[in-house]
């Protein structure tokens, strides 16, 4: 019952253009939704063992694209700060894959996202976001610097401000995810 939803994650360090990419594909202007996360932590005072709860509100930018009336694509941007890994887990559940936007001038800001998807075996592509046509590195240099464990991970240039470029990155991701589906046998049940 209801449309099948396809969920794609858009990840990348601050300022890499996640929301811009979402907006380039979404049929509506990007929305922001919020999740309140509760953390239980041990108190550190002398009386010891006192639990305290803190709540944090995590905001996610996302968009949608209706494919058919039985199929809808969602693009969810990862939270601004890297530390909300619990939210990443929720985003990743059943996700088709991720587009990881990379700023070649600040490669290390994308390492946490790449590590996250690699460890979990979630299909992802690396979209190198060039600003103002400036190209200080080649894709090969970026690939080497990223130290991707899997050499079959697609790496492509992407300008988040250019809608066709964004669509290309998404197409490459979905194709990559499909190829992975063919290769890995589905678990039973």
């Amino acid at each position: 019952m209801g449309p099948q939803s396809i969920k794609v994650i858009v990840a990348g360090g601050f300022g890499t253009g996640k929301t811009t990419l979402v907006g380039a594909v979404s049929e509506i202007p990007p929305l922001t939704t919020e999740e309140v996360l509760t953390q239980v932590s041990e108190g550190v005072d002398d009386t010891g063992g006192i639990e305290s709860k803190t709540t944090t509100t995590v905001a996610l930018d996302f968009g949608r694209r209706t494919i058919t009336n039985e199929l809808v694509l969602y693009l969810f941007g990862t939270p601004g700060q890297d530390r909300f890994w619990f939210m990443w887990d929720e985003l990743s559940r059943g996700a088709t894959g991720a587009v990881v936007l990379v700023d070649p001038r600040r490669l290390d800001t994308s390492f946490p996202a790449i590590d996250y998807f690699e460890v979990r075996g979630i299909p992802f592509v690396v979209a190198v976001n060039l600003f103002h046509g400036q190209r200080r590195h080649t894709l090969d240099e970026v690939r080497e610097a990223l130290q991707l464990e899997d050499s079959s991970v697609p790496l492509l240039e992407c300008d988040a401000r250019d809608a066709p470029s964004c669509r290309s990155a998404l197409i490459v991701l979905v194709e990559h995810a499909m190829a992975r589906m063919a290769a890995v046998p589905e678990p039973a049940g």
């Binding site: 019952m1 099948q4 939803s5 396809i6 199929l71 559940r93 059943g94 996700a95 063919a182």
Partner: peptide, 15 residues
Amino acid sequence: GAPSSRRSRPTKEDL
């Protein structure tokens, strides 16, 4: 409806 989950994954045709 069923969310994107193990029980209701997109098919290759969907993708």
